[in-house]
Design a protein around this nucleic acid. Structure first.
Lengths: 231, 231
DNA sequence: TTTTGTGAATTGCTTCACAGCA
DNA sequence: TGCTGTGAAGCAATTCACAAAA
């Protein structure tokens, strides 16, 4: 995973930038004109100082005594995230999850357009996962040409864990530059390739941990270490 | 979001614990008996010191000169995460994403069982999203009784953004303790409620940012600040 | 007033480096 | 020798607190 941060911007700040944008878009939809760092922070469970510091990493967007102008900031943040233009995206995997992602309506207004879907299973090739669009499932052999012709830079992987690594290689070889991976496996790729990973079970595990609490055996100190080996 | 950490364990360490478990399960499936912190780290893009430090937060699991015994550590980590027992989970939202999550086969072996699915749309109530299971979509009115009867503690929300907040309240009132939220909106709930959020567009935005690079206007310093206001 | 942007202080996390065990 | 567990050091992120702008 490309955890670059070669610029001086903290990784967590970039993650939060997406959340600020989402909140700002919601405010804009409600015709809100300005918002303060305090209000933005409250909506997202952050301090006002955190919000100001984060935004200040990218420029000076605020107006003292006023706050941030919503529409102005939306434009700026989109430009920073690179979603002021539309990205063409391909999807590999036409199983349950792949088809659901393909049909998901939320990507478009965020600047992402899934323009192609691939699968290696002959039984689904040629079918139309979303009847409202004229996009058939294509065989993997057409990857290279489609990536080139449609100028695709991002790929979503919704394939089984045991295929993910090889599919990742294939899409990168075809010219894709970044990957959103839904397969429950760690991809081993060049450091320079941006990878985002979503493992559905991992998120449930984090909830489980918080509810189960830290284990009754928090941490033994060095004094007791002598008694530790059990075999 | 409950970012508690009332214990002394770093939040990032808990997140990585899930990744260690996933990797360890994969090693176990390949009949690997032991693994070193170095090998575990390499597979996940972490340093060996990071792996040892993380695991040491939870106990002393390693064997000097040998490494970690895979099966032993799998058992220990499952117990720490609370997934050594099965959690009953409910799902709200029988749209494309909700049905895909309901049909997803990966949860069970991780200790999560989706035992009920709800929707407020009368047109889908009574239908069977997964024909291989005898679980019909239920109306929201049956939430309370089902949560109680099936001893459900976790809920997955796959509803539209504008319903998510009220649905979250409903499931909490029904007795649910933690929420995995797929709606692209920040839930405002009591600090004590664990919430995990997955926003599909947010992950694509992070890739977009990494490919677009930090903006050509990185950060003006105080000297140039005088020239900054544009309106 | 209100609210930003930002150095300084603080808190948190990761890496180093090595004693000790197998 | 190989490898863990862990204090200490170093680095990164957050919070504080206040001058300056509207």
């Amino acid at each position: 995973m490309a955890t670059s941060r070669s610029n001086g911007i903290p990784v967590p700040a970039v993650r939060r930038l997406s959340l600020y944008l989402r909140q700002l878009e919601s405010l804009a939809a409600n015709s809100r004109k300005t918002v303060s760092s305090r209000q933005l922070g409250e909506a997202l469970g952050l301090t006002d100082a955190q919000v100001r510091k984060d935004l200040a990493y990218f420029g000076q967007f605020g107006h003292p005594g006023v706050g941030y102008r919503v529409n102005e900031l939306v434009t700026r943040v989109r430009s920073i995230l690179g979603t002021d233009k539309t990205w063409n995206v391909l999807l590999v995997g036409a199983g349950n999850l792949g088809r659901a992602l393909f049909c998901y309506r939320g990507f478009t207004k965020k600047g992402f357009q899934i323009v192609a879907i691939f699968d290696r299973n002959p039984a689904v090739i040629g079918t139309h996962p979303d009847p409202s669009r004229r996009i058939p499932v294509q065989p993997m052999g057409e990857l290279d040409e489609t990536v080139r012709r449609r100028n695709i830079r991002l790929a979503i992987l919704a394939v089984p864990a045991d295929h993910a690594q090889s599919v990742a290689r294939e899409v990168l070889d075809a010219g894709v530059r970044g990957i959103l991976n839904f397969a429950p496996v760690a991809l081993r790729l060049d450091e320079s390739v941006p990878v985002a990973a979503v493992d559905l079970s991992v998120h449930l595990e984090q909830l489980s941990f918080q509810l189960a609490g830290a284990p009754p055996q928090p941490k033994r100190n060095a004094v007791h270490a002598a008694a530790r080996r059990r075999r």
